[in-house]
Simulated assay, not measured.
Amino acid sequence: MSEAARARRIETLRGLLAPARLTEIVDVGANPTELPLYMPLIDAKAARVTGFEPQPAAFEALGPRQTTHERYLPYAVGDGQPGTLHICRKDGFTSLLEPEPLTQTYLWRPRWSRMTTVMDTIPVETRRMDDMDEIDALDLLKIDIQGGELAVFQNGREKLGGALAVVTEVAFMPLYKDQPLLDQQMGELLAQGFLLHSFRTVVDAALYDAQGLHVPRGAHKHGQLIDGDAIFLRDPRRMEAFSDEQLKHYALLADGALDLQDLAARCLTELVRREAIPAAALDAYRQMLRESEGQPA
């Protein structure tokens, strides 16, 4: 489906749902290295993002994107304590944590060591998400700050109390010293009412000692797991726990950011059951999905 066609579908879905406000997204680590997963919602003018990016060059690159639907602030989000930003050769690896040399020597690809080489350090004052007046509402938290995610969750429990989904980078292998791994993130988010739904991406690598080895195709299907992007959802089994307004934003996020049309349909079904939207709205959404897949009406 083209970006324009998806934006039209989201515009139509938002019209069917008629939420009272824009869907609110917080992006911690908004470095524009790739197009964010929530951009279809922004393109459809159905959401607003408040992004945080402390790396000077990355924040400057976000400047042209500042609009009524996108605002960016040069804050380092964390535990509220002073920290040091380690600027790595590849800016996507810049972190408040120091790279872990043991992992660099363990992995096969020399580029891991090159990419995580620290080129500069910048002292920063971190800010707790719960202390930020800039965040009025939070429906989706997207976060990728190279090992600092757990500190944000622990110091953002109040803001996250109303959130519907978290998309976070999780680590299986520590690229940084004392980096919290998947189990710690998962434990904290589970305690806050989020369930792990799926992995959007998973990165793996072969070991350093595999250099020069001839490994027959198919004999080595998977390498050492490194990290990936995980989707955590506010418990979707408990639809009765959500207000009508929350379900409307949940449906918009499910389709427009998470690409989970089954979850969007579940939200619409619950809204129809409550008579918060007409049954025709669910029928119209199903028809849009059929048309997007090229199926006959």
Rank of each mutant, 00 (worst) to 15 (best):
M1Y: 13
A4H: 07
A5R: 05
A5L: 07
R9C: 01
E11S: 12
T12G: 01
T12F: 03
L13S: 06
R14V: 06
L17I: 11
L22C: 04
L22A: 11
T23G: 06
T23N: 03
G29I: 07
P32T: 04
L37T: 11
Y38A: 08
D43K: 07
D43P: 02
D43F: 03
A47T: 09
A47C: 12
T50G: 00
G51C: 06
E53N: 08
E53F: 03
P54N: 09
A57V: 09
F59M: 08
E60G: 07
A61V: 00
T67D: 00
A76Q: 07
A76P: 03
V77E: 04
G78N: 09
L85H: 11
H86E: 01
H86A: 01
I87F: 12
R89P: 01
R89H: 13
F93C: 14
L96Q: 10
P99R: 09
T103C: 12
Q104I: 10
T116L: 10
T117L: 04
E125V: 12
D133W: 11
I135K: 07
I135W: 05
D136K: 15
L140E: 10
D144H: 10
G148E: 01
G148C: 05
G148S: 11
V152D: 00
F153Q: 06
F153M: 11
Q154F: 00
K159V: 04
L160E: 02
G161P: 06
G162W: 04
L164T: 05
V167R: 03
K177S: 10
D183A: 12
Q184S: 14
G193A: 10
L196T: 01
R200F: 04
A206G: 13
A206V: 09
Q211I: 08
P216C: 09
H220Y: 14
K221I: 11
A230L: 10
F232I: 02
R237F: 15
R238D: 13
M239I: 09
M239Y: 06
D244H: 14
E245C: 09
L253D: 04
A257D: 01
D262V: 11
I277C: 05
I277T: 08
P278V: 12
A281I: 09
L282Q: 13
Y285S: 02
M288W: 02
L289K: 12
E291C: 00
S292Y: 03
S292F: 01
Q295D: 13
